[in-house]
C-alpha cells in the first residue's frame, strides 16, 4: 500500500515537472509563441476579438496571429471567416460593407454574450504594439476587380504596419503569391510567409520568391521537412496546435514559430 502511494506521488511529481527542450532552429534555439487569433479556437472569446487578443497578450506570449480583412472603405479589421454570416449578425464579405456597418455588427457565437469586430489601428493604438510580434494572416475575400482590391489592401496594410508597429516584428502570411510579391516589391525587408497546400509546394514557392518561411499545419509537416526548410534558410510557422500534445509535437519538430490554440500551456512550456 505504502509503495503504491509512493509511486503514485512520484508519477504526479513527474507529470508536474517542466519538460526541457533542446531546440535547433533558425530562431536562435527559441520558438516564438504566438496566439492563434488571440486565445485560439477553443476559447469562449471568439477568435480575433479585442478580448481574445488582450487575454492572449496577458500571458507570457511573444504576440499573436490575427486574420486581416479589409472593409469596402479600406479599413483593416480582424475577422477569420470568408463571410460574416457564419459568426455575426451581418452577411456577405467584409469587403461588401463599410466600417460603419461592421462597427455595429456583433459576434453572436455564444448565447447571451456579444463582442465587436475590431479595427486594427484602434487595437494597436491601445497596446504597446511595437513590443509584440503580430502575424497578419491576409484574407483576400472580395468580388470584382482583384487588381485594384489587392493594391488598396497592400497600401492599407503597409500604412498600418508603418504607423503602429515595429515592421521587423511583423509577419505577413498569405496563400496568394501575387499579393505577397506586391508587398515584396514595395517592402523587400518585410517578413513574408507563404501558406501552401503542401510542404513541397511551399518549399518550392518560398525558395523561388525568397520569402521568409512557410506557414503550415503542424499535422502537415514532419521534423525532417522542418530540417529541410531550415537548410534552405526558411522559417517554419505552425498552426493547428489545438492540444497540449500537438504543441509538444510542434516543439519537438524544431519549428521556429507556433501559433497556438493552447496559450496558457505554451506560455508555460516554453518559459
Amino acid at each position: 500500500m505504502k509503495k503504491s502511494v509512493f509511486f503514485g506521488l512520484f508519477a504526479v511529481l513527474l507529470s508536474c515537472m517542466k519538460q526541457e527542450y533542446e531546440i535547433e532552429n533558425l530562431n536562435g534555439g527559441t520558438i516564438d509563441k504566438l496566439g492563434h487569433g488571440g486565445m485560439g479556437v477553443g476559447d469562449t472569446y471568439p477568435m480575433n476579438t479585442a478580448e481574445s487578443i488582450k487575454k492572449c497578450l496577458s500571458y507570457d506570449m511573444d504576440g499573436t496571429e490575427m486574420d486581416v480583412q479589409m472593409t469596402k472603405d479600406g479599413v483593416l479589421v480582424a475577422f477569420h471567416d470568408e463571410k460574416l454570416d457564419s459568426k455575426t449578425n451581418l452577411s456577405g464579405f467584409v469587403n461588401d460593407v463599410t466600417w460603419a456597418e461592421i462597427h455595429a455588427a456583433k459576434y453572436i457565437v455564444t448565447p447571451h454574450v456579444q463582442y465587436d469586430i475590431i479595427r486594427l489601428d484602434e487595437l494597436f493604438a491601445s497596446l504597446d504594439a511595437k513590443k509584440y510580434i503580430f502575424s497578419f494572416d491576409v484574407k483576400l475575400y472580395s468580388h470584382g476587380d482583384y487588381t485594384a482590391y489587392f493594391d488598396s489592401y497592400k497600401n492599407a496594410l503597409i500604412s498600418l504596419i508603418e504607423s503602429h508597429t515595429d515592421p521587423a516584428k511583423i509577419m505577413i502570411e498569405s496563400q496568394d503569391t501575387v499579393f505577397l510579391n506586391m508587398i515584396k516589391a514595395e517592402k523587400p525587408d518585410y517578413r513574408l510567409f507563404y501558406y501552401p497546400a503542401s510542404f513541397e509546394s511551399g518549399l518550392e514557392s518560398c525558395v523561388k520568391h525568397q520569402y521568409s518561411g512557410i506557414t503550415i499545419s503542424t499535422r502537415s509537416v514532419t521534423k525532417e521537412q522542418v530540417g529541410l526548410a531550415h537548410q534552405n534558410g526558411l522559417l517554419i510557422v505552425t498552426w493547428n496546435t489545438h492540444s497540449k500534445k500537438e504543441n509538444r509535437e510542434a516543439i519537438l519538430k524544431n519549428v521556429d514559430i507556433i501559433e497556438t490554440d493552447k496559450v496558457a500551456y505554451l506560455s508555460k512550456a516554453l518559459k
Binding site: 479585442a50 488582450k54 447571451h112 454574450v113 487595437l123
Partner: peptide, 21 residues
C-alpha cells in the same frame, strides 16, 4: 426574459455590457 452582464472592450475601453434576450 434573460438578462446578461459581461465585461467587454468598447473602443478598447473596458466596460460592462448588458443584454436582454
Amino acid at each position: 426574459p434573460s438578462f446578461s452582464s459581461f465585461p467587454v472592450l468598447k473602443q478598447m475601453e473596458k466596460q460592462r455590457a448588458f443584454l436582454l434576450s
